[in-house]
Write a protein that binds this DNA or RNA. Structure first.
Lengths: 147, 147
DNA sequence: ATGCATTAGGTTGATGTCAACGTTATTTGC
DNA sequence: GCAAATAACGTTGACATCAACCTAATGCAT
């Protein structure tokens, strides 16, 4: 039945060792956990991270967020649409560069963020506590090397 | 300008410490890297993992893959559609349970997998080599604790 | 100054992702 | 045996994700 060129051992190798698979799986599960925590506040984990990144003296441009969030520029454009529609974010033309737009938290967006912060912190502390080997900092370091 | 209830320090706390953000970001970047490696073979990283999981003596049911891939059951249903349409996977009714269906690699799917395996291995080895602190095994352990 | 590469961003199409809800089949409790 | 609970799966709707392709503005080099 099994193709000798693709033995079960290859399947098990991917299952047990593939960092891409392990990372995707852990990311999905952790995302669901944060999504559940943030749901009462009407935010997903990605929306929380994005909104929080806008809390600066000067609103960032889309391109500024790419290295921070690690997502494609066009993904960001799409992710902003529901937030703008819900009035949590608005974009203003950049004063110095007509190509760019600055992203700004609205009062509603700021209120949403402030309300959600304790939930994020509680879940985050709980996750941190489950990490022993190397501690959370070791994991963050390892993730930084991968990214 | 900045709301005193949501100071910059909170924003920096999320940016620097949020494991959810760090995990999502690393997962996106690594996914793009594997996607690029697998693109000549017409597969994404997720499709590769999924197809590889079907390489068993007896095709698994959808529910069997949920813990392995860590994704929602309905996500799996959706992910299978393009693969079935392209003739890489087909589903057959389970002999013992009329509710379930078994997922089976087609000959084309198997060929695709075999062809893609060296690319996966090369990229995977390269990623492994970039991890020093704790080594790849330490990271996998940490990810398992999170998931 | 002007031409051209670069940069910021948008749009489209395909796929990935999940919650909420519904259907059908199995199992379990009595 | 049969009713209720459970389990396996599908569909829908909303959002996330990226590659490929496009427009417009900036900047630099001559």
């Amino acid at each position: 039945m099994m193709d000798p060129d693709l033995p079960l051992s290859a399947t098990h190798e991917v299952r047990d060792r593939c960092l891409c698979l392990h990372l995707q799986r852990a990311a999905r599960r952790l995302a669901r956990r944060f999504d559940a925590t943030l749901r009462p506040h009407g935010l997903t984990n990605g929306q929380f991270s994005l909104l929080m990144a806008l809390n600066r003296p000067e609103g960032p441009r889309i391109g500024d967020l790419v290295p921070l969030l690690g997502m494609d520029r066009t993904t960001l454009t799409a992710a902003l649409k529901p937030l703008e529609r819900r009035g949590l974010v608005c974009s203003v033309a950049d004063a110095a560069d007509a190509r760019a737009r600055r992203l700004v938290l609205t009062a509603a967006g700021l209120a949403r963020l402030k309300a959600a912060l304790p939930a994020w912190r509680a879940t985050h502390d709980a996750v941190d506590a489950t990490l022993d080997a190397g501690g959370p900092e070791g994991l963050r370091q390892a993730l930084k090397q991968i990214g």
